[in-house]
Design a protein around this nucleic acid. Structure first.
Length: 445
RNA sequence: GUUCGGAUAGUGUAGUGGCCUAUCAUGGAGCCCUGUCGAGGCUCCGACUCGGGUUCGAAUCCCGGUCCGAACGCCA
């Protein structure tokens, strides 16, 4: 055997029809050892699945047999042997080993169980993410997250969007509203960016026409919920010569496409997670802000009386989400025509009714997923809007300049990648869908 | 940040003042076992978050710290 060849196949690639009873080399972790005395089964796990390595005491080298039954769980091994069909083996085959190379012995006891026999709390799992990821259910989440991001890229590329990357270290003055993390940039103060908003708008002036970005955003809010992170992944688009209704259509079609791609390409992972995926029907319901607050106020469970101009709290969001779900059977919907006052400075108002803004939120039954708007593209109007929000327009020079020399009308949105995955899979906690989440308390690992 | 709840072997748990040299499962060590697939059987190992207090007696009650969870707030 060539020592250089630690693996010839993933366990899933072993197929009796194509391989016959040839030799293979598989590599992975010792999932379990079942020693029955005269026969010993070693279950090897790799990314794609598991394979049973079978050792019959009387038929195999004594030393190999004894070392196999002493293998420590989660030890990394490479096994070379012949494939043998067997009705008694899982997947219909087993490996009769020639050699079992121990590549790295695992310590014992393990920080948590990997076999699904004993649960672990999220905090324990995050502390030992490297072990947690060895569990099929955890790994399935991140394989699905990959499918989600791939589907987003495929869809937006197909729609003519150009993938872009904008800086995460910024001088100052983003959108306001949320707090920023200050950092030291050589001898100057700088911040981690809260969103690519201002940069993707500058790209519209640059004529890239339609751009998207999938990247990290940072919020220094001291929130403490199951659906907030201080470092999140935002999927953002900006598109020229489109109004807010145009980009809403892109958004709902993208979400439906992502769901269908996950269903098509990650069926096994959905089964591992016991998720029955319902592809959202498009177009999504468009509820006006006024209709939304009417629903809350008419709801007997509502404890507050909302006035026009109030933002929607968590409880209201839930009431509206349940209402929509009961009426339509769908989890996704839009809330449109928000009061201009509670939307950011860059959102455009309707020309004929300035108190309403051309902005929207895209909601899931359980939480907000996305917000977007047609943007204000006239320099002077934008500048005075910044100032009327109490922000210092000098800090926005780098941004405002792009509006003076030919900025097309444009619209865009941002959707939280983690929330998209979380609502798709019905996970309880947003941290479940982030490899190494950053929240108010957690900075490591 | 507010309110409420919690912390017991590596992991997940039972245990509301003495019956606790603390339950069960998983795990680890060892022995038996030739078809397991959450293997099975037997033996052993391993824990009360920290500091203070009440009490004859505290895992259990009280105070404080630390850490964790949930709802809300803030926010996306």
């Amino acid at each position: 055997m060539s020592l250089a060849k630690l693996r010839t196949h993933y366990t899933k690639q072993i197929n009796l029809d194509t391989i016959g009873e040839d030799k293979v080399t598989i590599a992975g972790w010792v999932h379990e050892v079942r020693d029955l005395g005269g026969i010993c089964f070693v279950v090897l796990r790799d990314r794609e699945g598991r394979a049973q390595v079978t050792l019959v005491k009387k038929k195999i080298d004594r030393e190999l047999f004894n070392s196999a039954r002493k293998l420590v769980r989660e030890t990394v091994v490479s096994v070379t042997g012949s494939v043998k069909g067997s009705d008694q083996a899982p997947n219909g085959y087993e490996i009769i080993p020639d050699t079992i190379d121990v590549l790295n012995v695992a310590d014992s006891p393990l920080p948590m169980d990997t076999t699904g026999k004993v649960d672990a709390e999220l905090d324990t799992r995050l502390d030992s993410r490297f072990i947690d990821l060895r569990r099929p259910g955890t790994q399935a989440v991140f394989k699905i997250r990959h499918e989600v991001q791939k589907a987003v890229r495929d869809f937006l590329t197909q729609e003519g969007f150009i993938e872009s990357s904008t800086p995460k270290v910024v001088a100052t003055a983003t959108e306001g509203g949320t707090s920023l993390f200050p950092i030291t940039y050589f001898d100057r103060e700088a911040f981690l960016n809260q969103s690519p908003q201002l940069f993707k708008q500058i790209l519209m002036s640059g004529g890239l026409d339609k751009v998207f970005e999938i990247g990290p955003i940072f919020r220094a809010e001291e929130h403490d919920t199951r659906r907030h992170l201080n470092e999140a992944t935002s999927i953002d688009i900006e598109a020229s010569f489109m109004d807010h209704f145009d980009v809403m259509e892109i958004l709902e079609n993208m979400v439906a496409f992502v769901y269908s791609q996950v269903k098509e390409n990650a069926g096994h992972m959905l089964e591992d997670l016991e998720v029955e995926l319902a592809i959202p029907k498009t177009p999504f319901l468009r509820l006006t802000y006024q209709e939304a607050i009417d629903i809350v106020n008419a709801d007997p469970n509502s404890e507050e009386e909302l006035q026009w101009g109030d933002d929607l709290g968590t409880t209201s969001e839930h009431l509206i989400g349940e209402h929509v779900f009961n009426e339509t059977g769908e989890s996704h919907y839009f809330i449109i025509d928000w009061p201009s006052e509670i939307k950011p400075f860059y959102a455009m108002s309707y020309e004929d009714r300035p108190e309403f803004s051309k902005s929207f939120d895209m909601m899931h039954r359980t939480m907000e997923l996305s917000s977007g708007a047609q943007r204000l593209h006239e320099h002077d109007a934008l500048k005075s809007r910044i100032e009327s929000k109490g922000l210092d327009s000098d800090g926005f020079d780098f941004y405002l300049r792009a509006f003076r020399y030919g900025m097309p009308p444009h619209s865009g949105w941002g959707i939280g990648c983690e929330r998209l995955v979380m609502t798709m899979l019905g996970t309880d906690n947003i941290r479940d869908v982030v490899l190494f989440p950053r929240d108010r308390k957690r900075l490591s690992p």
